[in-house]
């Protein structure tokens, strides 16, 4: 009963979001560009510092962990391969997605939830303005663009973190580290990471919006829904990740 209602509500939200982001624009109901740019700044641009710092640290951690094993075989230069491949294929997209879940997924749920509680959503509908088109679609486009973009940032900074550690503590030669990284990285690795990031962006938006629209009561429920949105979107990101990684393992 409860599950079937959830499935029904989510399916309806996805359906409407798809309609207003892909079909309606072809019929002269364009996406709100200005709102999309505002959301891109809020969700993407403003996340650059935190994504950078975390990616840099994780790059260092990864290099240290790799070195711990590799130095026993005297193959320390392969730290570059390990850092490069794991960051671009896996850690860049997932770290970014988790940070964005915490920052923006929760903000979406809180924004829509408090609008629901204050009858602002009803007010939009009563003015003939579809709340999905007005609120969700700009967020969706913002995350579909900004999550891959942030992932590129995360990839670069993460690899730089590994590089910084390797050329100092591990005393690897900078030039050969860079060469080794370039040789190890395939376009495919980076692309699969970016495709994942794009899908995570969709998942985070839908979860945040769903939780927001579920608010029925007042401020306290907004808080609960916000928390729930973070937990649910991190879970969803991991499930998506499992799915795509399996897919890419067999089909690329």
């Amino acid at each position: 009963m409860l599950l079937s209602k959830t499935v029904h509500d989510v399916a309806r939200l996805i359906n409407e979001t798809f309609h207003w982001s892909c079909i309606a624009p072809l019929k002269g109901k364009p996406v709100r560009i200005k709102a999309t740019v505002t959301e891109m700044v809020r969700t993407g641009y403003n996340s650059i510092p935190i994504v950078s710092v975390i990616s840099f640290f994780v790059g260092i951690i990864l290099a240290l962990q790799a070195a711990y094993q590799l130095k026993r075989f005297g193959a320390l230069i392969y730290v570059a391969n390990l850092v490069g491949v794991s960051i671009t294929r896996e850690l860049g997209p997932i770290l970014t997605a988790i940070i964005v879940s915490g920052r923006s997924g929760s903000a979406f749920a809180a924004e829509i939830g408090s609008m629901k509680a204050a009858e602002e959503i009803d007010a939009l509908t009563s003015m003939g303005i579809n709340p999905i088109r007005f609120l969700v679609v700009p967020k969706l486009f913002a995350l579909m663009i900004m999550l891959p973009a942030l992932t590129v940032v995360s990839d670069f900074i993460g690899i730089f973190g590994g590089f910084a550690l390797s050329v100092t503590l591990l005393e690897l030669h900078p030039q050969s580290y860079i060469q080794q990284t370039l040789d190890a990285l395939l376009v495919k690795d980076i692309m699969t990471g970016l495709i994942k990031a794009w899908a995570f962006g969709i998942g985070i938006t839908i979860v945040g919006a769903y939780q927001g629209f579920q608010v029925r009561g007042g401020a306290e429920e907004v808080g609960q829904r916000t928390t729930a949105s973070v937990v649910a979107s991190i879970f969803l990101v991991i499930v998506f990740d499992l799915f795509f990684t399996t897919l890419f393992y067999y089909f690329t």
Partner: peptide
């Protein structure tokens, strides 16, 4: 049709 809600329901943003 125009409607004024009981709580005004202005968009706070």
């Amino acid at each position: 049709i125009g409607i004024l809600f009981q709580g005004a329901a202005l968009l706070n943003s």
